[in-house]
């Protein structure tokens, strides 16, 4: 998992609410036993029509929006299916940060395990970010995980909360499972105590 401490990027706005994981990664692309190759199918049905032609209106197809690492999204981003493939798709496409006023539960956990930082702001702050990046699509914003803030082009800051443990694992690219495995004696003790 790639480390993330601080990131400066232009943004891709996705204003819609309740963007579900079927939009982020349609189910037909889950037919795979591999963990790679998902980036090209991110938001597939937004980006291409039925015959496979590019939809010129999709921001994801516009040259100036390529290589951007931040998505700013409407409320309840990532709802629906538990498929981690949605997060793999975002990360493999090159997205490192998603900013929204609320994230779906399982999506949030999947993101943390893949180094995708979810920045949760208030609905008012989200609207402010939308208005800034829509007024100037080339506005660059800074996401500073160490200081837990988003710095807007005018220098103003929006602070965000993150669990200290999660902050550490993302900043250091640390693996959860290895952490639990290192405590095996406690699992053995629990199993014997509860007769499991």
């Amino acid at each position: 998992m790639e480390k993330l401490v601080k990131l400066i990027s232009k943004c891709i706005p996705v204003r819609q609410k309740n963007v579900d994981t079927d939009q982020i990664m349609p189910a037909r692309f889950l037919i795979s036993v591999s963990k790679t190759g998902y980036g090209e199918n991110l938001f597939r049905d937004w980006r291409y029509d039925e015959s496979g032609n590019e939809n010129p209106d999709s921001l994801f197809n516009k040259e100036e929006y390529k290589n951007r690492e931040i998505i700013v999204a409407g409320d309840n981003f990532g709802c629906g299916s538990s498929r981690e493939h949605a997060v793999w798709g975002l990360v493999q496409y090159g997205i490192r940060v998603v900013i929204s006023s609320m994230f779906a539960d399982i999506f949030k956990k999947n993101s943390l395990k893949n180094g995708l930082l979810l920045v949760q702001v208030t609905p008012d702050e989200l609207q402010r970010i939308f208005s800034i990046i829509e007024a100037d699509p080339d506005a660059e914003i800074t996401v500073d995980l160490a200081n837990q803030n988003v710095v807007m082009p005018d220098g103003s800051e929006i602070e965000f909360e993150i669990d200290p443990f999660r902050k550490q694992t993302i900043m250091e690219g640390q693996d959860d499972t290895a952490f639990i495995m290192a405590n095996e004696d406690k699992i053995v003790e629990y199993e014997s105590r509860f007769n499991k």
């Binding site: 498929r83 981690e84 395990k113 893949n114 499972t177 639990i180 495995m181 699992i187």
Partner: peptide, 11 residues
């Protein structure tokens, strides 16, 4: 998610 499936299988 799948990372957690791995975590539960392992631990």
């Amino acid at each position: 998610g799948t990372s957690e499936v791995e975590q539960v299988l392992a631990t």
